[in-house]
């Protein structure tokens, strides 16, 4: 294949990675931005989304579209329920202390992995794409569903932005982010906001899992890669900066697509990490982070 089409394919692949990554990382970034905690089990919420999608698909039997739509409803709800339980039972009790939260969510990560391994099994299971068509370029064919994923992700990103910028709930979140005490003084139910944000972050991960599963299969160990990529993205973008997260997701996603196409995917991940080092040397708070 000549260079032009090869690059086109690389960019398409990069765009899919970037979009799904942006959605996943946005969840992580939102939680950090508002609550100042890092959820290490974020990747497991993504994995759970994929696993729930598999269950939905096997429930609805023949209809791939039905299963997919059911999953789009169920996966976020299931994962949000879990996130709310985590918030109530664990995070509140450690008072959102950053380090304790990290240790607790590491514990949660392994509990969830083991639960899925015991309940769902070690196999990677496929889920059929809801819409299947093959886009035939002159040089290669491409999955139409992947283009759907790009579209759906962009809509999710816009939707999240609209909620944050245009609704009362979004206002409460932004107020809590800027100053929790002042927000409380103005009657913002900060605890409720925390719970809602933690659930919303988890839901974004779950939806990303549902979107990706027809491309990737559901497997109990699938959560680690998106977690690490999300970390890279939020660090480069600046912890807590949603705009930075989205920009960084596109930078990392596209470069990952191109580097792994022309060189090696392992190399792409190593280089992305080194990029983090570079960013930190130049701007310790990330590209869009606030100066401490």
């Amino acid at each position: 294949m000549s260079f032009g089409p090869h690059l086109l394919l690389a960019l398409l692949e990069g765009a899919v990675t970037a979009c799904v990554l942006a959605v996943t990382a946005l969840g992580l970034s939102l939680v950090f931005g508002v609550m100042r905690i890092v959820n290490v089990a974020h990747g497991e919420f993504y994995m759970l989304g994929a696993v729930v999608a598999w269950f939905c698909a096997s429930l609805t039997g023949g209809s791939a579209l039905g299963g997919f739509l059911l999953a789009l409803v169920c996966a976020p709800l299931v994962v949000a329920g879990l996130a709310i339980a985590t918030d109530w039972l664990v995070l509140r009790r450690v008072n959102y202390h950053p380090e304790s939260t990290i240790v607790a969510t590491i514990g949660l990560l392994y509990l969830l992995q083991q639960a899925v391994l015991s309940g769902y099994g070690p196999d990677a299971r496929p889920v059929e794409a809801p819409i299947y068509f093959r886009v035939a370029f002159p040089w290669f064919g491409y999955s139409g569903y992947k283009l759907v994923v790009i579209g759906a992700s962009v809509m999710l990103l816009l939707g999240t932005w609209a909620v944050l910028a245009r609704t009362r709930a979004g206002l409460c979140m932004r107020a809590t982010q800027q100053d929790p005490e002042m927000a409380l003084a103005h009657g913002v139910p900060v605890r409720l906001v925390y719970t809602a944000v933690f659930a919303a972050g988890a839901m974004l991960a779950a939806v990303a899992g549902v979107l990706i599963v027809p491309i990737q299969q559901a497997h109990y160990l699938m959560g680690l890669d998106p977690l690490l990529l999300s970390f890279i993205v939020v660090i480069i973008g600046g912890l807590g900066s949603l705009r930075g997260t989205v920009v960084a997701a596109f930078v990392i996603g596209m470069s990952d697509g191109v580097i792994s196409m022309f060189f090696s995917p392992t190399l792409a991940k190593i280089l992305a990490t080194l990029l983090v080092a570079l960013v930190l040397v130049v701007r310790p708070s990330g590209l869009f982070g606030e100066r401490p």
């Binding site: 690490l228 970390f231 939020v234 912890l239 990490t273 080092a277 930190l280």
Partner: peptide, 21 residues
Amino acid sequence: AFALRTSGVSFLIVTMMFGQA
């Protein structure tokens, strides 16, 4: 030398990423 330019949660994430790298 460079990871310690960050602190708190960023340091944590950076250690995890470099461990993986």
